[in-house]
């Protein structure tokens, strides 16, 4: 019988009297990226630190591929981008990446090639022979991402991978994750919900150290009610709501933010709601910015019906 990729049972962690994680239990199988979200102090970094073997839980059990975190059987199989970690300032980037690759079992020539490859993947070949103190925050972050990509890990734990990166590099990181999935499973902790919305099929929501009972499935195809999110240019909100409400199959129209509308509809009564909405917008001579299927992750997580 195949054990799940991650198995957490009654995981609790207490930091000097403060409960950071409380009885967290879940199982995850290999596959598409999984998002880990929650407000500041919710326990995301604590959970990822326990999974990475950096922190021992106060109680409960954790298994990755059937092994406890930090087990030598996981070398090369599990990789991590810690939220706060800097490379050794005394050695060049390439020296350290080669050392890490050697620890993963690469020979010296293979390790040099692998270190060069991961640096190229994060567009940092120019920093190969630099020492960490001369790197900007964004560059240091990309080097930290590069070390997580060494070899072919089956599971990569990323804690805030895009925090502090410019848009071009955010796109690079997104492309790396998309390219390596689902051969590599990514667990991504982030506050950038739009980013997670793009990358992840499943979301784990932590609040005050407690894992919310159900993981959020971002796939709405099987649900009886579907949603469309519409971002308009400046428009008369009341009229928009009234016009949309009158359309065939529309169940509810909400206006959570200025110029943003969420249309709930019955797909059986109107399978082509997107076309119907476009026609309505055109006939009213309104301008729109974006029309997308489903609710935004922010709406799903924090503004449930």
């Amino acid at each position: 019988m195949n054990s799940p990729m991650i198995h957490c049972q009654q995981l609790t962690h207490v930091y000097s009297g403060k409960v950071a994680l409380s009885n967290v239990s879940f199982e995850l199988d290999a596959g598409e990226p999984v998002g880990l979200v929650g407000p500041n102090g919710a326990g995301k970094t604590t959970l990822l630190s326990i999974l990475s073997g950096f922190l021992r839980p106060t109680s409960g059990t954790v298994r990755l591929f059937g092994q406890p975190p930090g087990a030598t059987q996981l070398i090369g199989k599990v990789s991590a981008l810690p939220q706060v970690a800097r490379l050794d300032p005394g050695f060049t980037i390439i020296e350290q990446l080669v050392f890490y690759a050697r620890l993963q079992g690469f020979t010296t020539p293979q390790a040099a090639l692998e270190a060069g490859r991961v640096l190229e993947e994060v567009s940092l070949t120019e920093a190969t022979h630099e020492k960490p103190p001369v790197l900007s925050h964004g560059m240091a972050k990309r080097v930290a991402i590069a070390q997580a990509l060494i070899g072919k890990p089956a599971l990569i734990l990323l804690d805030e991978p895009t925090a502090g990166l410019d848009p071009v590099n955010v796109r690079t990181v997104r492309a790396i994750i998309a390219e390596r999935s689902p051969a590599t499973t990514f667990i991504i902790s982030s506050h950038d919900l739009a980013e997670l919305d793009r990358l992840c099929k499943h979301i784990l929501l932590l609040e005050n150290g407690i894992l919310q009972p159900e993981t959020i499935d971002l796939n709405e195809e099987k649900s009886a009610i579907r949603y469309m999110t519409l971002q308009m240019e400046t428009c008369p909100a009341r009229e928009v709501i009234a016009e949309f409400q009158a359309l065939e199959g529309v169940l509810q129209v909400t206006n959570p933010q200025k110029n943003e509308f969420i249309v709930a509809y019955d797909p059986e009564r109107q399978p082509h709601m997107d076309l119907q909405l476009m026609q309505c917008i055109t006939s009213q001579h309104w301008q729109y910015r974006q029309l997308s299927h489903g609710k935004t992750l922010e709406e799903k997580l924090f503004f449930k019906d």
Partner: peptide, 15 residues
Amino acid sequence: RGTLRFIVVRSSRDR
């Protein structure tokens, strides 16, 4: 500094 995290994830604390 957190450097030990990069090393331990591909080795072990004992090592």
